[in-house]
Design a protein around this nucleic acid. Structure first.
Length: 105
DNA sequence: CTGGTGACCGCTT
DNA sequence: AAAGCGGCCACCA
C-alpha cells in the first residue's frame, strides 16, 4: 500500500510537536522531496483534517506566515502559535528556538 | 485530454 | 545584491 504524496505530507505535518513550527521545505523533505514544498502549500490549502493537521504550525523558510493563510487575519495563526508558547520577532517565528528539528527528535 | 495555477524552495544569471 | 525560472503534485476550466 503506497501512500500518495499528499498523505505523506499530512503525516509529516501531523508529526509536528506542540509548541514547534516546521517549514514547507522540511515537510516536503519528510514527504520525500524538498521540492514538494509547493505541493505542501496546496495540501494544507485543501486541509481535509484541520483538527489533526495543524497547518498553522507550518510556516515558510523565513518563519513568516503566508499571506494566503490570512484566514480572518494573519494574526490568527500567530495568535495560535503564541498560545503554544512560540516566540515571535517582528511578526516572524523565532526559528532558532521553535523550529522543529526531526534530527533532534 | 491540455493548459494554467498555487500556503514554496533553491539554483542560476 | 536582486530577479527569474524550474520542479513537484493536485485540482479547475
Amino acid at each position: 500500500m503506497e501512500k500518495n504524496t499528499f498523505e505523506r505530507i499530512y503525516e509529516a505535518v501531523r508529526l509536528i510537536p506542540f509548541g514547534k513550527v516546521a517549514t514547507y521545505g522540511q515537510i516536503a523533505a519528510l514527504a520525500g522531496n524538498p521540492r514538494l514544498s509547493r505541493v505542501v502549500g496546496y495540501a494544507l490549502h485543501v486541509n481535509p483534517d484541520p483538527e489533526s493537521i495543524p497547518c498553522y504550525r507550518v510556516v515558510n523558510r523565513l518563519g513568516e506566515v503566508s499571506r494566503a493563510f490570512a484566514f480572518g487575519g494573519e494574526n490568527r495563526q500567530i495568535a495560535l502559535l503564541e498560545a503554544e508558547g512560540v516566540s515571535f520577532v517582528k511578526g516572524r517565528v523565532d526559528m532558532e528556538k521553535h523550529l522543529w528539528r526531526p534530527e533532534v527528535e
